[in-house]
Design a protein around this nucleic acid. Sequence first.
DNA 1: ATGGTTTATTAACCGTGTCAAGTAACCGAG
DNA 2: CTCGGTTACTTGACACGGTTAATAAACCAT
Lengths: 388, 388
Amino acid sequence: MNDEAAARIALLRSLSAAPSYVFTTVLTRSPISRIDVSRLTGLSQAAVTKAVAPLVAAGLVVDNLGSRRDGLPGRPVSPVAIVPEALVTIGIKVNVDEVIGVRTDLTTQVLATHRAPLTDHDPDSVVAAIAQVCARLEAPLGPDGGLLAGVGVAVSGDVDTAAGVVRESANMGWTAVDLRALLQDRVGAPVVIENDVRALTITEHMFGVGLGIDSFAIVTIGRGIGAGLHVNGEVVEGVHGVAGEIGHLPLADRDRICACGRRGCVEAVAATPAIVAAISEAHGREVSITEAVQLAHDGDAAATQAFTEAATTIGTAIASLVNLTGPDLVILGGEAVSNFDLFDQNLLGAYREHVFGSAGRCRIVIRPHTFEDWARGAAAAVIRTLAR
Amino acid sequence: MNDEAAARIALLRSLSAAPSYVFTTVLTRSPISRIDVSRLTGLSQAAVTKAVAPLVAAGLVVDNLGSRRDGLPGRPVSPVAIVPEALVTIGIKVNVDEVIGVRTDLTTQVLATHRAPLTDHDPDSVVAAIAQVCARLEAPLGPDGGLLAGVGVAVSGDVDTAAGVVRESANMGWTAVDLRALLQDRVGAPVVIENDVRALTITEHMFGVGLGIDSFAIVTIGRGIGAGLHVNGEVVEGVHGVAGEIGHLPLADRDRICACGRRGCVEAVAATPAIVAAISEAHGREVSITEAVQLAHDGDAAATQAFTEAATTIGTAIASLVNLTGPDLVILGGEAVSNFDLFDQNLLGAYREHVFGSAGRCRIVIRPHTFEDWARGAAAAVIRTLAR
DNA sequence: ATGGTTTATTAACCGTGTCAAGTAACCGAG
DNA sequence: CTCGGTTACTTGACACGGTTAATAAACCAT
């Protein structure tokens, strides 16, 4: 990164709680008047004025956008706004077969995308692929890295964010991989390692439906089934690094064996591979996921049955999650949500059947996530480290 | 309450975050040296000295207990200790058939107990019973209420603590009962209404196994099955007042109908009434819980089967809880835990079978709770409102 | 006694945010 | 156009709450 970026980051790091909160408020709700910041943060107007000044001086925030002309009496608000291009981040999502990277601005708007296929899963090969994607994303920034603030990497599994270590990833077949150490000297900015679902949760909390809500969950449906939890405004990390393992709730039949070896896991019925396997078996041949969706749409009995069972199980799992943690909102995400019409009725039906009392006032929204969105999550994890 | 108590409470209320934290630290770890308080709270020694002074002046804390003679070099520590008798609380647990009340000191040590049977469950009758128990517990304190700081009431169900309203209690058949309003002018101190399991969680967090642990759960097994959750140091209340409903996770067979009307709830298999009902049916006559336990100990097939199924279901439910929230500790409590030998193997077996990855490093401890302990929980809820 | 060591207290100081007052920028009415 | 009404923002004094650094206190070992 260059000196300008370094100065901005240093400023953000030096902020104490209140000014930092002012910054994130401006970041997530930009443009916004000072008085609204004051109301949202609970700080005095004076404190907001004082907190905003250095941010403007550093070029992170702009003032004096044209002021309102709304006919109301009184001095018009003069909103301040974030300068999205004040810093740049790179977000990387590591999939089983591919590394996807995005370059984003401060608001996780995607500026560029690059991908690299993965053939091997050993840490060195993956690190090489990540470095290659990074290199291509960094190139336009110039030799010094320009305004690059950090590189975030999202990996599924048990991730120790503070240490930058992937403790365990069944997906990748990794145990105790010090990803940050391996990557740090191959990219031009600080590296942040984060669990993929948690990263997605951070994005939704800062820039998505989760904005302003401090108890919510995001459930991702796809190759795996996972959940990220926010409770009382904080990410639930799990004391031992594991939490939100909704895919391994034992809600399915005991005779369904999960890839993890346990019996009756939700994933053993409702993850994409499980659905495809069930339909394939019924038809006596290998069916692709695209074909499986088509069959279900065409009313094929086996396919309908498989999707129904999956939807019911997921709905039950979400009810369990809601009964235990009582969130305000559940966001349904992940790749498979684009076929939500296949889940819709049965999922919500099972959810409503099992959710308890007023916990059922929890809202459920659908948000299909592309792989790019996962990478954006990794970028959001970087931004989160800047201001919190 | 008298003037002395009022002054002490006013002092505690006036404390800002840091001194308040000092007080709770002394309260929960008394006796303790100032330097240990400093280490535990992260405050400077100077701040601790300053914070302790007014507490000593108010008689909430004592100084100058005989100092150590341990042969170590250096000035010996002169620990400060809480003065348990500086304030008195009353804690009430409302059961279906009985109201149990305790008078306690600041550390929830029980000073006296009184009970009153409940014949009717309508709010007025229950309030009358509570008032009667309170009156008897308050009597020795003198006409002005003496050092009484508050009256806590623990009720099962959906409780809005801030409003003092029981929003819903299936147990009592209540909906939107403004218990605090009904009770406030019949007792001589502020009334705190709390969910019973949450109250128990508060006790364990302040004075029990949960001390110093900020992500833990307490699962109570008995007439109902519930859970209280602490995540990241805070009680999980549920945005809509419902959380920890582990008894209504749909982990049992769909043909088991729960008292709540849903299918497959854990309670429909594992709560005491469900166990008794299963055994009664098998034997073609009404069996009491005492007899059910006896039958199981004697190796009766139906009884063994019922307890095994209950234990397995509860173990699975706990695994689900742990997989989702990743706590450090699960406390098994409630009345039925006294028969834990009947649950033991199957419960832990099912738990270990379904818990995921390193979440399984979560410890599980048994703590049988008497009804008096539940009432102590209500007292702890009062103390919690004093210093937090 | 004397120095070493650890705990507790004291005093100076400083960062952070509030309060209260003042200033700015608009409206609409006379 | 001016002038009061209204709302948004700024400024400076101040108070609070904590830290750091120096000092005192209370013990041990030599």
